[in-house]
Simulated scan of single mutants.
Amino acid sequence: MGRFQFGVCEFSFPCWGPLALQMAHEAGYTGMQLADAGGSTNAYPLNNKRVQDSYLEASAKYGIQLQSIHLYTLVRQNFIRYSQSSPEGQECMESIKNGIIAASEMHIPTVMIEGMRMYGAAQHQHVLDMYKYAVKVAGDYGVQIAMETDVTLENHFKFLDQFDGKLKLCFDTHNPVMYGTGYPPDMIRALGKDRIDHFHMKESQPDAEGFVTKETAPIVLLGQGGTFFKESVQAIKDIGYEGWIISETFYNRRNMNENGMDYVSSAKRDVETLKAAFGED
């Protein structure tokens, strides 16, 4: 096994479940970050043994390691920014605990939780409280919690270092550019390998005015955007990181399925780009 392993987000594909694992395998990926199959809105499918067995069978069949669970639905509910005493906060805690239990039962090492848009002091405290809860529960089940965020480098240190190394990062090399919070390669070097559980990588083209925003910048294949992909790869190498690089390219977007391309052929190009950039066969 090489120094780097390349995986992909389940929600990068149009269909979740075994078909997503099959597509990842056909593209050349060896790992997948699962989504949560609808989480609380679908009565927590990943805690259902039949659903678990379906994923585990597909994982074995296609040689795709289940690298982590992304609490995808919780992100879209925004409940992590609510007080734990509120109904939304209670559902957030339930989602976190069930995600951790599912990971433990499926032998998935990491649960990834986004902590984005902590705009006010109250929201910052609510998010901090939720991560404290998550880290405590995860410790009981032998699972690692990883955080993806959009804060500045200084605030990365302030937030993470309250957890004495028990909370790690899913560092997304695209986020600092899109949110205007820093230059990704410099942030990677400053944070160092010990604070990072795994990386997300995706790329966007800047808009006509040179900005990368959610509203105007389409996701493109790795190496074809303006979000410092090559420079970030070099920084990841420089800090001595070893482990998972997870593509978050959205192969289900219309622009990825033009000019004879489809979900798998687009993903295959990203695998080729990752292997060439990181020097892995």
Rank of each mutant, 00 (worst) to 15 (best):
E272A: 15
N155E: 15
P87Y: 04
M106Q: 07
I80M: 04
E88Q: 15
P206G: 06
V8K: 07
Y62T: 06
E88R: 13
D36C: 02
P45I: 03
G63E: 00
V137Y: 04
D53S: 13
G7E: 13
Y183A: 01
T273G: 03
S86I: 06
H107M: 14
G260Q: 05
C92Q: 08
T213N: 06
V143Q: 01
A208C: 02
A277S: 15
A138M: 02
D197P: 00
F250Q: 11
I236K: 08
W244V: 12
Y251N: 04
I245P: 06
T110H: 08
M32S: 09
D262G: 03
H107C: 13
G89I: 11
E258F: 07
Q52A: 11
N98D: 08
H200W: 11
D194G: 05
H156L: 08
A267D: 02
Q205G: 05
Y131Q: 10
N42E: 15
I113L: 14
T110F: 06
L19M: 12
Y263I: 00
A37S: 15
E114R: 01
K193F: 03
A122C: 09
G139D: 08
H70V: 03
L169D: 05
R195S: 12
Q123R: 13
I236Y: 09
Y82R: 13
K214I: 09
E26D: 15
A208F: 08
